[in-house]
């Protein structure tokens, strides 16, 4: 198998987008275990797709999130209820045929006992099953949140490790001496990432806004909240910047910065 040809055949894209047939999928997954370069190429495409999709994200309709969260907590609450609402069914046999043979009585009695025992076992295994389900669900939840954290960390290190990334250390101003943040600026694709180190909580009608100073003119690079502490944020791209600055503005940002609320400032190499 020529793996380079295989990678260039479009199979990766078909697999990721769910357009591959069952046999193609099986073959692809099998080859992934043998060729790390195939996995890397798949990951590349997935990352491009994810980036594109998040750039094209649309505001989801109001109220859906609440409905989803309600449905989820209903599902977890329903588990113990369904156990108690399904008591084991015990069917008693009516003693109609009085005076029937001893053997028949014995068989009848035995089957009643058998039924009770069976019902009890069924109930036990049902209960055990439900217990396992709920502990399983708890584990999935945990996995889910760990996964999320891990992805955030991986994304962060990817940016930090990139040799083209320039780090601009922003220090606090007189107004806010403790406010500090780092700008990671990728000179090849002009991406700007922000890691907030220490920014005080703001009232809900205010947001922080990042600015690039280009030839003395401030240009808006987007707004962010103080609760994004220590998380890497992707801001708007910029080709040039002699300095980056953070100000406090009304929620949603302002077209020009309110300079007396400047929280933090950092100069780039282009300023020298």
């Amino acid at each position: 198998m020529n793996i380079k040809e295989y990678i260039g055949s479009g199979i990766i894209e078909a697999y990721v987008l769910g357009l591959a047939s069952e046999s193609e999928k099986a073959e692809f997954e099998q080859l992934c275990t043998q060729y790390p370069e195939l996995v890397a190429a798949r990951r590349d495409f997935e990352e491009g797709l994810e980036k594109h999709a998040s750039e094209q994200a649309m505001q989801p309709p109001m109220g859906v999130k609440v409905k989803v969260l309600e449905a989820i907590s209903d599902a977890t609450r329903d588990v113990p209820e369904s156990v108690s609402s399904n008591p084991p069914k015990i069917i008693t046999m009516a003693n109609e045929k009085r005076g029937s043979s001893g053997l028949l009585r014995f068989v009848a009695a035995a089957s009643v006992i058998l039924l009770v025992v069976l019902a009890w076992f069924t109930y036990q295994s049902h209960k055990q099953n439900e217990d396992l389900k709920s502990s399983n669900a708890a584990l999935h939840d945990e996995l889910n949140s760990t996964q999320k954290t891990l992805e955030a960390i991986v994304n962060e290190t990817n940016v930090l490790k990139n040799p083209n990334t320039t780090v601009v250390n922003m220090v606090g101003t007189k107004v806010a001496p403790k406010s500090s943040a780092n700008v990671y600026w990728d000179s090849t694709n002009n991406n700007v990432f922000l890691v907030v180190k220490n920014m005080p909580q703001l009232p809900s009608d205010k947001q922080y806004q990042l600015w690039a100073l280009i030839d003395g003119k401030p240009t808006d690079l987007g707004v962010f909240d103080s609760r994004n502490d220590k998380v890497i944020l992707q801001m708007k791209d910029t080709k040039k910047a002699q300095a980056f600055a953070i100000t406090i503005e009304k929620a949603g940002g302002n077209p020009t910065p309110t300079l007396d609320s400047m929280q933090s400032l950092g100069k780039t190499m282009q300023s020298q």
């Binding site: 998040s54 649309m58 989801p60 907590s73 939840d141 945990e142 889910n144 999320k148």
Partner: peptide
Amino acid sequence: DNQAFSTLYDNYAGA
């Protein structure tokens, strides 16, 4: 955990 799921929603619902 529901909070983690809520964050997952916030991050991906739009896309």
